[in-house]
Design a protein around this nucleic acid. Sequence first.
DNA 1: TTGAAATTGATAAGCCCTCTCAATAGGATA
DNA 2: TATCCTATTGAGAGGGCTTATCAATTTCAA
Lengths: 153, 153
Amino acid sequence: MSVFHDQPYTMSKNLKEMDVLRQHLAKHQLKLTRQRELILTAFLRQEHVTAETMYHQLAKKDPHLGLATIYRTLNLFCEAGIAQARHFGTQTQYDNISHKGHHDHLICTGCGMIVEFENCEIERLQEEVATKNGFVIQTHRLELYGLCPRCRH
Amino acid sequence: MSVFHDQPYTMSKNLKEMDVLRQHLAKHQLKLTRQRELILTAFLRQEHVTAETMYHQLAKKDPHLGLATIYRTLNLFCEAGIAQARHFGTQTQYDNISHKGHHDHLICTGCGMIVEFENCEIERLQEEVATKNGFVIQTHRLELYGLCPRCRH
DNA sequence: TTGAAATTGATAAGCCCTCTCAATAGGATA
DNA sequence: TATCCTATTGAGAGGGCTTATCAATTTCAA
């Protein structure tokens, strides 16, 4: 977002996720590379991206950065708990988890309008269901499809 | 000839969706074919399928039924509002909408295992959110992603 | 029954994503 | 700091799932 463009050095904002990544890398005997830092920094500036999008975005900063590296790195972020993959249409969206969990969607099947909402009670019940099944929730997706006021005529 | 002569007992169950399909076809100048009837009948007996699954299931009844036809027909069902496509992993799941609201999913991001669940309280809250926004819900999708007991180590 | 238009089946093509592998880079160790 | 083992990278090939193509067939209104 624009906040970041005004501040070229975003280290303080990124510190938390960078730390999570570092810990994950250490734990699995992986290495912190220039590419991984670059991709993480760019990734954290957005709520969700596709590999293709990042490929074009980063081409300016590093014209030789390969698409495969981006896929690999985004998948690494998922394993580290920084990102969440979501299959949407034919593509995979990688969501920034730190921005997540707070906007579910009401989608109008008539006109395609999307209304975002948040409901703590629903989230609490989700946790309950997960616990009952022995799961630990990382993220979720809730979409309600229906007709908006206007499309109901 | 018709699958209904072989299995008359499915007639009453399929009537509603078959009617929906007929109306959709009429509205768009499409035709009701033997294949579309066959695929709809098989589709309605299941909660969710992949094109590949149906291909194998139906190979017994019609060895010459093509995979492309199944994809085309399942997509047609989506347009007619009988099915709902859901991208999971690398494949597309086609859900039977008439079973809607009766199985949401807990999905393990470690091993891909899926646990189905149902929670009336969550559904009630969804209705509440929709009403508050002036929407009338037709269907919904709720997926909780996390680690299953085994993948938590 | 006829004929225009939709549909089908087989397969080629396309799209995303992952795998392969030689070259390069990270970082633990001395 | 230099060395060496291992992880990573980039480029392109490969692969799985889905859609497009097209001649032959089927549907259905007239």
